[in-house]
Amino acid sequence: MKHRTFEKAVKAVTCSLLLFSMAAQADLSLAFGFGMNGEDKTVTVYDGSQKKVITTNATNFKQVLNESDVVLNAYDKYWTSGDDVRDGSVVVVERAKPVTIVSGNRAKTVYTTKQTVQGVVNEAGFDWKKMMPIEDGMMKVAQGMQIHVVPYTSRVVNRVESIPVRYNSWYDSTLAPGQMEIVQEGTQGKREVEMEEYISDGKVIRAEAGNVKILSQGTPGIAKTGDMEGTKGYVRNMSATAYHPTDGGGFGITATGTRAGHGTVAVDPRVIPLGSSVYIPGYGEAVAADTGGAIIGDRIDLCMETFEECYNFGRRNVEVFVNY
């Protein structure tokens, strides 16, 4: 009997010692800042255009918002960078905006944190397969805006339309920045566009382009510009003459070894490198493939097919469009 009493006494003392040891460890943890919940963390809070960076030992994000003096209204929301408050966590507050949804003869004001018109319509419970906003669904929501929701049907139609003329531009240092002069008009192309039209009350309220089929490319125009960016080359004012392939040695072979003909021009290689592609209004596209004893500096000699063409051309000042 005494033996059992002694065992009970030993167990009681042992339990007391364990409890004392655990309590002492807890006190030490609090005293020295041990334990995850007690650690200081840096958290950034974004509330619209305001940004606050706080140091906190909060264990949940509601405490973080309270410490940041952020008051949430009934429909406001917030999202966080993670589930737990950690060092470097981010909290973003989204403020609800009042928006009026008009459908038929009914108007209802709702408070929303959605960023787009379509998001508001979806949140309000409208079936997007049957109802749609007249406004662009991707339009950014603004406080106090009205969104008009209507029933609709859709159809697919094919339309043939013109492709705007594209202009190849050459830099002209005599023009001011932003100035452009058309040298040669281009021609429009044609394309067939598959359009999905959305109809409400017998009127097309929106149309979206689908597949596009090019019917004809058109031809690009030529323009001079005072802006160097995006240009194909540069414009140089030169004195031009004309020559026949049989001039000179009479063999019709250029300095680069090609046969001379319309589209061959002679240049000073120090001004326009041999092999350069050029365009001369009234003459057309050409290649700087030849040289000449009298072709020095801003001189250019255009090869013609007949002596009559050479005679009629004579000497004149031309603009030479040199490709880079």
Rank of each mutant, 00 (worst) to 15 (best):
F32V: 13
F32I: 14
F34P: 00
M36I: 11
M36N: 01
G38Q: 12
G38E: 12
G38A: 14
D40T: 14
K41D: 10
T42I: 15
T44H: 03
T44L: 07
V45R: 03
D47S: 09
D47T: 04
G48D: 11
S49P: 00
Q50C: 08
K51S: 10
K51Q: 13
I54Q: 05
T55G: 06
T55A: 09
T56M: 05
N57K: 15
T59V: 14
N60W: 04
N60E: 10
F61V: 09
K62V: 14
K62L: 15
Q63M: 13
V64D: 04
L65K: 00
N66F: 09
E67T: 06
S68C: 14
D69I: 09
V70E: 02
L72F: 05
L72V: 08
N73C: 09
K77C: 08
G82E: 09
D83F: 01
D84Q: 08
V85M: 06
V85E: 03
V85F: 04
G88Q: 07
G88D: 07
V90S: 00
V90D: 02
V92A: 08
V93L: 08
V93T: 08
V93N: 03
R95T: 13
A96D: 03
A96E: 02
A96P: 01
T100F: 06
T100N: 07
I101N: 01
V102Q: 10
S103G: 01
G104Q: 09
R106L: 15
R106D: 15
R106A: 15
A107T: 11
Y111E: 14
Y111L: 15
T112C: 04
T113V: 14
K114E: 15
T116S: 13
V117S: 01
V117Y: 01
V117I: 10
Q118L: 15
Q118R: 04
G119V: 07
N122A: 11
E123M: 02
E123V: 02
E123Y: 01
A124E: 13
A124W: 13
A124C: 12
G125E: 09
D127N: 13
D127I: 01
W128V: 14
K129I: 05
K129Y: 12
M131Y: 14
M131E: 08
